[in-house]
Amino acid sequence: MPKITFNGKETEFTAGESLLAFLQSRRFAVKSLILDWNGQILTEKDPLDTLYPKDGDTVDLFSMVGGG
């Protein structure tokens, strides 16, 4: 099974699974999340359902919470 480094941990994923499907399968709500996908910054406005991680990729999640 292909693996990505997800939030610092080696994690298996289903080949052909989109970034959105990967996150949803792990119960992450995409709203107010910042994704760092191999150094590329993505938000909920990006077409996460059409982006596909590959074996060896790195995905890190950061949540944006209110206050300022």
Binding site: S32, I34, E44, K45, M64, V65, G66, G68
Partner: peptide, 10 residues
């Protein structure tokens, strides 16, 4: 202040 505005700017 708001979380959705923060991601909007990014």
């Amino acid at each position: 202040d708001k979380a959705d505005a923060k991601t909007m700017l990014i």
